[in-house]
Write a protein that binds this DNA or RNA. Structure first.
Length: 502
RNA sequence: GGCGGCGUAGCUCAACUGGUAGAGCAGCGGAGUCAUAAUCCGUUGGUUGGGGGUUCGAGUCCCUCCGCCGCUACCA
């Protein structure tokens, strides 16, 4: 199988992670795990973006130096991802020693190519914020943060990247490889921006201390975007040649809000530096809350920890990826979360597992019968096909929907075959083996399919029905899952229902 | 303002190039007992945002109105 290098956006750590951050990590993790399930050699990288104005400000507000501040902040992210079972292979921080050399090397290559030139950046400047402001950021011509002060029109000498050069090459690239930007709506947006034309973009900041030293000019630091984007390379060892072991990235998972940086600026940087382009960028949508995007302000309304605490990490992973389409926005609400947890996880899946294990315990002294091809084979392969085509297209919510069809079929199958009646007649022993053995096979398949989404619960499920420790086997075993012969584990139910729903 | 998207049953969403409006959840009725009062079967429910047009026929195409939303580059 092939290699698969997948990244998420690195999070800007000026505040604690919220559901929106979690959605991206959980989705990327599911994709990474799916590829592991396929047998691919996967490298999954996430991390934090720790330089820049806003971080510095946040640190100053708390009266600590920025490095101390990010050191503390990054632990919140790591802890959150650990809680959620995000199985990253590497966690890159832009303040790590390994990162700056990559940024500087990349910029030198770009400069060697004649794409870095001195220039003047002009704009509104708010002294209170010590930051440039866009026209759209101003309210009545003043900075909303410091309405008592005039914004001034400021010029700053800094370095520019000749982004405009790359309009045509990027357009061509996009037209030849439509999969480069997905979903399609984002591709169209990127295409529009390109058609409108590109301006050169500044890549340095003068007199700004919290950043990477600009190569060749001690008075400048690297503009944060150039710093941050390069993490995808530094994480795999660039500029050392060993970066080629993983590069080019197979998939950058980012939020739709930063599409252009990843689909225009970043590839242009790489073209300039003579580095291969990533194969695909996926711009996911947002988790909304009451109709608005979840952001730092809305993060107060619902904390990530409270969402995890509700039912544990796996149900949250399930809910986010089932309810928020991977190619669009979707809403989070407690009511909806509860509904899906109870209906899908507790009633349908959890109860099917529970009743199956109980029947094996009761009718077969706890030993899972071996069954071969059974009545459910046909639909199992139908589901596999739908699952694979959804997952290969990164449509995670559809992959989940496909998987749960197996659960529905399983429950219907129990009713039709009524094992409790078969158990009354010794002459039906073979038939009974076939039925509950078939159910065990079906649940094993469900465990396999759902592994990317609920890594911990699927392991419990697999162990419960097969008696075997460890995670479910990979997709290659789907055709003939090895569940027979083991002793089932009759333990606590997989998804206990909250008292309120019981 | 410009470009783009959306508005389908109470809720979340389907419906390929126009051809008898579907699913899941919730609700209601029944069956059943292996199971987390779970499950299974059946069923109520929509003038597809409003109006007009093209067509034998439109949720699906065109026009218009109303209401949401996205992009419109140096914020990570």
């Amino acid at each position: 199988m092939g290699k698969f290098y997948i990244t998420t956006a690195i999070d800007y750590c000026n505040a604690e992670p919220h559901l929106g951050h979690a959605f991206e990590k959980v989705g990327a993790d599911a994709i990474a795990r799916y590829h592991r399930l396929l047998g691919d050699d996967v490298r999954f990288v996430t991390g934090t973006d720790e330089h820049g104005q806003t971080v510095l400000q946040a640190a100053q507000e708390r009266g600590v130096d920025p490095q101390q501040f990010v050191d503390r902040m990054v632990e919140h992210f790591r802890r959150a991802w650990d809680r959620l079972g995000i199985a990253y292979d590497d966690f890159i921080r832009t303040t790590e020693p390994r990162h700056a050399p990559a940024v500087q090397a990349l910029l030198r290559r770009m400069a060697d190519n004649g794409d870095i030139t001195p220039g003047v950046y002009e704009g509104h400047y708010c002294v209170g914020c010590e930051a440039f402001k866009q026209e759209k950021d101003l309210v009545n011509g003043r900075c909303p943060e410091h309405p008592g002060r005039e914004v001034t029109w400021t010029r700053e000498e800094n370095y520019f990247f000749r982004l405009s050069r790359y309009r045509d090459p990027l357009l061509r690239w996009l037209d030849e490889r439509p999969e480069f930007v997905e979903p399609e709506i984002r591709r169209n947006e990127v295409r529009n921006v390109l058609l409108e034309g590109l301006q050169d973009i500044s890549v340095s900041r003068a007199r700004f201390p919290w950043g990477i030293a600009f190569p060749g000019d001690r008075d400048h630091t690297v503009y944060v975007w150039f710093d941050a984007l390069t993490n995808y390379l530094s994480a795999v060892g660039y500029p050392d040649e060993r970066y080629r072991e993983w590069w080019p990235a197979d998939l950058h998972v980012v939020g739709k809000g930063i599409t252009r940086f990843h689909c225009i600026v970043w590839p242009a940087m790489l073209l300039s530096a003579g580095v291969e382009l990533p194969r695909r960028v996926w711009a996911h949508g947002y988790v909304t809350w009451g109709g608005t995007k979840l952001s730092k302000s809305a993060g107060v309304v619902i904390t990530l920890d409270s969402a995890i605490d509700r039912y544990g990490p796996d149900p949250l992973r399930y809910f986010l990826l089932r309810e928020v389409p991977w190619d669009g926005d979707g809403a989070f609400s407690w009511a909806r979360f509860d509904e899906r947890y109870v209906a899908d996880l507790a009633n349908d899946l959890g109860n099917l597992a529970n009743r199956t294990v109980n029947m094996i315990q009761r009718y077969r002294h706890g030993f899972t019968p071996r069954a071969s091809a059974d009545a459910l084979e046909h639909v199992a392969f139908e589901v596999l096909e739908r699952y694979r085509s959804a997952m290969d297209a990164d449509l995670l919510h559809e992959g989940l929907a496909a998987s749960f069809r197996l659960v529905d079929v399983g429950n219907a199958f129990v009713e039709e075959s009524a094992p409790w009646n078969l158990a009354k007649e010794p002459s039906h022993a073979a038939k009974l083996d076939e039925v509950i053995g078939g159910l065990a096979r079906l649940l094993a398949r469900v465990a396999i399919l759902l592994t990317p989404f609920m890594p911990s619960k699927t392991q419990e499920l697999w162990t419960a029905i097969s008696g075997r420790e460890g995670p479910p086997p990979d997709l290659g075993t789907y055709g003939d899952p090895d569940v027979g012969g083991g002793r089932v584990r009759v333990g606590p139910v997989l998804f206990p229902k909250p008292p309120s729903a019981a």
